[in-house]
Design a protein around this nucleic acid. Structure first.
Length: 431
RNA sequence: GGAGGGGUUCCCGAGUGGCCAAAGGGAUCAGACUGUAAAUCUGACGCGAAAGCUUCGGUGGUUCGAAUCCACCCCCCUCCA
């Protein structure tokens, strides 16, 4: 490999497989190249699983190449079967179309549209597929695919071989659609490199083959490793579920907290995967962390960098503001305006009418989403793990909601910051 | 079509008439220890503040009493054709 970019990616551990490995470095070094990565709309937001490919597009752009972010308005209607255990439920066209709009806006934040010849573009595969007739598709595209080869792909093998699972013709065709995308982008934009997660290998090589057959052009593929955690649990999940990129789904504060909680064993890898920090700088952080006692600095750096990339300076500031208020000492220092700000910044909060207080604390905290059931609240109350404005509430006070949330206990006459356990906070505003 | 084995609480998986809201493990939540980490230990873990209410594929039935027995139905797996 001679390409500086590839060396850096290699050092970061971001390369899983390369198709056309021998020629790729020289090709990349030969000028500004065009590459693409697809994002299917399977929800109204991407989650952090898409972060690595999104940042990858940006890495290529920073190295002078032109990234195309493909939003799968067409493929999203079909559903990618790759390594999925079961057939998926189809979403209606209007729902998918709505998601496409959201995803388009979202991916746009990660790439630069004003970078000269390396300026990014967003494309939608529905544009070149919706008017293709079935007969044209079967004759012009389908003819280039061997079913014999397709059923050999690892990504669909279990669906074909395992009894009781099965795969519909619809999902089986997905690979052809995605391959057609690559060939089409090659024709339209001179795009000759597709990147994606390691599960996309089969789809990518399919597109490389089709590009050669249809247009006689050589194309490349690069996949990134699946992000795993040292403890074996799935990356990207928290107690409250998936970590989304949309601030309306996962607040910048929750997002920041997610990264702050990264295990020591993963944090340096994550810095390489999810930030643009130089690998040497990351190694330096690792070294100085190893020398110090106690808490490493790496998680803080990671949380700060990734939150800034995804939510910008304002989102980061909001996240840090809440974190400082809640975790570094006295929330008593918060001003009246600060409380309102916390709520704006994404701290979970709710407004309760003093006249309509629930009968019990268990009810109140469960309804606020702080716990899954009254039993959990009961357990926490019994262990002094519920603090209302810093004062522990007891199980004996369960039915005495009005006492716990008394006027005297309020901050500025209406705010109650409730903590359950070590990390769960909820702001109640009494009206 | 034939033969056999299954469907149990979020997941895996015991349980074959009362002691079963149902063993054990995992996940999850809380506590201790810590660094808002990991590991470990402790407690909780169907819902409910409680009284109590609702579960063991579905529907009926037997019984004082069923996840457990019977009938029918639905679904899954293995082997044979």
């Amino acid at each position: 490999m001679s390409s500086e970019l590839l060396k850096d990616l290699e050092a970061r551990g971001l390369i899983f497989q390369i198709a056309g490995e021998a020629e790729l470095p020289a090709w990349l070094d030969g000028g500004s190249r065009t590459l693409y990565c697809g994002f299917d709309p399977t929800a109204d937001s991407l989650h952090i699983g898409s972060l690595v490919p999104l940042l990858m597009l940006r890495r290529f752009q920073l190295a002078g190449h032109k990234p195309l972010a493909l939003v799968g308005g067409a493929t999203g209607l079909i559903g990618d079967p790759s390594f999925k255990a079961q057939e998926r439920q189809l979403n209606t066209p209007d729902v998918v179309a709505g998601w496409v709009d959201k995803i388009r806006d979202q991916v746009s934040k990660f790439i630069d549209f004003d970078a000269g010849e390396a300026s990014a573009e967003v494309v939608n595969n529905l544009d070149w597929t919706e008017d293709v007739s079935v007969l044209d598709f079967l004759r012009d595209i389908g003819k280039h695919f061997s079913v014999n080869a397709m059923i050999q792909k690892e990504s669909v093998k279990q669906r074909i071989e395992r009894e009781g699972s099965g795969i519909s013709f619809t999902e089986f065709s997905y690979m052809i659609l995605q391959s057609y995308d690559f060939a089409e982008l090659n024709k339209r934009h001179g795009c000759s490199l597709q990147i994606g997660g390691s599960d996309q290998w089969g789809n990518i090589t399919g597109g490389i083959d089709l590009t050669r057959r249809l247009h006689g052009n050589q194309a490349f593929g690069l996949t990134m490793p699946l992000i795993t955690k040292s403890d074996g649990t799935k990356f990207g999940k928290t107690e409250s579920g998936t970590v989304w990129l949309d601030p309306a789904r996962t607040s910048p504060y929750a997002f920041y907290q997610f990264w702050l909680g990264t295990a020591d064993a993963d944090v340096y890898n994550f810095l390489r995967f999810f930030t643009f920090l130089d690998v040497d700088a990351i190694a330096e952080i690792e070294r100085s962390d190893a020398e110090r006692q106690g808490r490493p600095a790496a998680q803080g750096v990671l949380a700060e960098e990734v939150t800034r990339i995804v939510h910008g300076d304002e989102g980061l500031a909001a996240a840090v503001r809440i974190t400082d208020a809640l975790f570094s000492g006295s929330f008593e220092a918060l001003s009246e305006d600060d409380f309102g700000q916390l709520r704006q910044d994404g701290l979970p909060a709710s407004t309760v009418a003093r006249a309509e207080l629930p009968e019990t604390l268990t009810q109140m905290l469960t309804e606020a989403g702080m716990a899954a059931s009254g039993k959990q609240v009961k357990d926490a109350l019994g262990r002094d793990a519920v603090l209302v404005n810093g004062v522990a509430a007891s199980w004996a006070q369960n039915a005495a909601v009005a006492d716990v949330f008394s006027q005297d206990a309020a901050r500025f006459g209406r705010f109650y910051l409730v903590r359950l356990g070590k990390k769960k906070y909820h702001l109640f505003e009494m009206v």
